[in-house]
Simulated scan of single mutants.
Amino acid sequence: MFSRIFNFLIGMMFIFYGIFALTLKKINTKPGMAPITDLNFGYLWLIAGFLLIGFGVAFLYLSFRSEKRIKNYPLFLRCVGCGKFYNFSDVKENPICKACGEKLVKEDEYENAINQKEAERLRAERIANGIIKPKKSKRKVKRK
């Protein structure tokens, strides 16, 4: 975010310097420290003005361009069943554990997957003991 603001401010500065170079035919390189450069000979004022405006447009492009989302692949995957680690490059085509056959998940999703698996196991156990009833599917029947 700060780089976009910085690029915008630098771009506007270059554009203003370019406009001043084209209209006044002078460039103030360091205000108060260096003398004003007179560009009155030849077409140097045109070259400097358009170059400065070009740099300004380039910096404005950098500040308003859209950054493409780059998909970051995880370095390691972890098995939900046995907890074994796998390198992502080894199992990227088929993310299934070779030891137990469970699915492999990212490191940050591991806790959620374990909790979900435990909840499903507890629900199946309660249904088997008759504590709760299985959910009925709510399918809508289309009538003609």
Rank of each mutant, 00 (worst) to 15 (best):
V57S: 09
E118L: 13
I96H: 10
E111Q: 14
Y86T: 07
E118W: 01
N112S: 07
Y110P: 08
L46D: 06
N87R: 15
E67S: 15
C82F: 07
Y86F: 14
G101K: 03
N87Y: 15
V57E: 06
A58K: 12
L52M: 10
D90H: 13
I114M: 11
S63R: 00
L77D: 08
L60M: 04
C79N: 04
K68A: 07
I96G: 02
L52R: 01
A113Y: 04
L104W: 08
L75V: 08
I70N: 05
Y43M: 02
L44I: 11
E120G: 04
L52Q: 09
F50G: 05
N112P: 00
L75M: 10
V91K: 02
I53H: 06
G49Q: 06
L62H: 12
S63G: 07
G49W: 05
K92P: 12
G42C: 01
N72A: 15
V91I: 13
R123F: 00
V105F: 02
L46F: 12
K117R: 12
F64M: 05
E93L: 15
P95R: 01
A119T: 01
N94D: 12
A113K: 03
P74V: 05
G83M: 00
L62C: 05
C82K: 02
R123S: 03
L104Q: 02
N115W: 08
R78E: 08
L62V: 01
L51F: 04
L46C: 08
A99H: 14
I53E: 05
E107Y: 01
E118F: 10
R121K: 14
A119N: 05
S89M: 14
G54M: 05
N94A: 06
K117T: 11
F85H: 14
V105K: 04
E102R: 12
E118S: 14
L44H: 09
F55W: 03
D90L: 07
F88N: 00
Y61T: 00
K84L: 06
L52F: 03
P95S: 05
G49I: 00
E120I: 06
F88A: 03
K68R: 09
A124E: 14
N115H: 05
N112D: 11
F64A: 11
V105M: 00
E107L: 14
A48D: 11
F76H: 13
D108M: 10
K98N: 12
R78A: 12
S63V: 01
G49L: 08
G56Q: 01
G101Y: 03
G83Q: 07
R123Y: 07
G49S: 10
F50E: 02
N94H: 14
A124M: 10
A48H: 09
W45A: 07
N112A: 04
Y61N: 13
I47N: 02
N112K: 15
E93A: 15
K117Q: 12
C100T: 00
K98H: 14
L122F: 05
G101P: 08
P74R: 01
A113I: 01
K103S: 09
L122S: 07
K98E: 08
R121P: 00
V91P: 13
E93S: 08
I96D: 02
A124K: 13
L51M: 11
P95A: 08
E67Y: 13
G101H: 07
F64C: 10
R65F: 09
Y43K: 09
L62S: 06
L104P: 07
L44M: 10
F55G: 02
K117G: 01
R123G: 00
C97T: 01
E111F: 09
E102G: 02
G49C: 02
Y61E: 09
I47C: 03
R78S: 09
V57G: 13
E107C: 08
